[in-house]
Design a protein around this nucleic acid. Structure first.
Lengths: 188, 188
DNA sequence: ACCTGAACACCGTTCAAGT
DNA sequence: ACCTGAACACCGTTCAAGT
């Protein structure tokens, strides 16, 4: 019944891709507590230990997931768009990523190192955009980032209720427009 | 070496007070992962199971901690202060509570039910205050709450670094003043 | 009422052994 | 290079037994 002990035939093993897919699936429909190395291995039909040939440990797994999800946020960036448009689009994409995988967001906040890479890149881009719109760069950068995180948290807490989730997404867009309006009113 | 099996002499047992104190201590200097029922029991010199005579389970323990810490946020409230002052003071107290026990905040966000009671009372009070200052009540309530949570999260992530923590607290106050200024400029 | 000890079904991770 | 099985040091929680 059990797999043979040695290295399996070519194509039988797990790939990092498959591990990340399965981990995200566990997180998405079981919540934060559903992602354990053992449950993940079971879902992949493999022993827990074989995962450690692809990721260093659980923290590294979360880091890889963060990179996959939040790394894409900067991808849709258009260099030529006016700063306010670009800023708005960036924050909406970020917030949407948070909303699509709320349990990942919660896990990541508990493991800040996992998120450091993507967060730094997103923040850097955001800071550049803000600097085109107001001299109070640090202040507005913090406001926009903190507000996005707080709203993302509310989204994560409401993740069982899809209707409420959609309402929160809409509310975020509304709040963001208000903030951006005031940011540009503060003017350069 | 081990305690006798039956009920101990009067005053030998654990109290809920002592459990909450110890739990907070574990959280504060060990972070989110340091609070386990077993570690908590060990710190109190008791078997894990005796804790279950005082709290239903781990979630209930977190709820009791949330009530202790966040319940106090409304205590300093002065009914007669002008709404903007009261709003500012409320948010600073809330943010400070978050900052004083960052690991609790992180744990609570992962267990939203634990926080429901205190959060609802704080939000209700905040909403009343906001309604005195602007017609856009829901929008500004969300902005202020989400911003406070997001900033609290940053505080939690930086909790090893006390100097950075202080800087973040100061930044929050600055951002809050800016937001409140714009809130009142939007006017009733 | 409140404690104990043993037990159950879990964790993450290391190590040695296999191919 | 990549997998397995056994092991270690943990979890939360239930249950029966003690006083």
């Amino acid at each position: 019944m059990s797999r043979p002990r040695g290295r399996p035939a070519r194509g039988q093993g797990v790939t990092l891709e498959a591990i990340l897919d399965a981990a995200l699936a566990l997180l998405d429909d079981g919540g934060e507590g559903a992602l354990s190395m053992r449950a993940l291995a079971a879902r992949l039909g493999v022993t827990p230990m074989s995962l450690y040939h692809h990721v260093a440990d659980r923290a590294a797994l979360l880091a890889a997931l963060a990179e996959r999800i939040y790394g894409g946020v900067l991808a849709g960036d258009r260099e030529d768009a006016p700063p306010q448009e670009a800023l708005r689009a960036l924050l909406l994409r970020y917030h949407e990523a948070v909303g699509r995988h709320p349990a990942l967001t919660l896990s990541i906040f508990g493991e800040p190192a996992a998120f450091a890479g993507a967060a730094a890149r997103i923040t850097a881009r955001l800071e550049t955009l803000v600097s085109h719109l107001t001299p109070q760069v640090g202040l507005w950068r913090d406001i926009l980032v903190d507000h996005a995180h707080g709203s993302g948290l509310a989204l994560a807490a409401a993740h069982k209720d899809a209707a409420q989730g959609a309402a929160l997404q809409a509310r975020y867009a509304e709040a963001l427009d208000l903030l951006l309006g005031q940011l540009s009113a503060a003017g350069p």
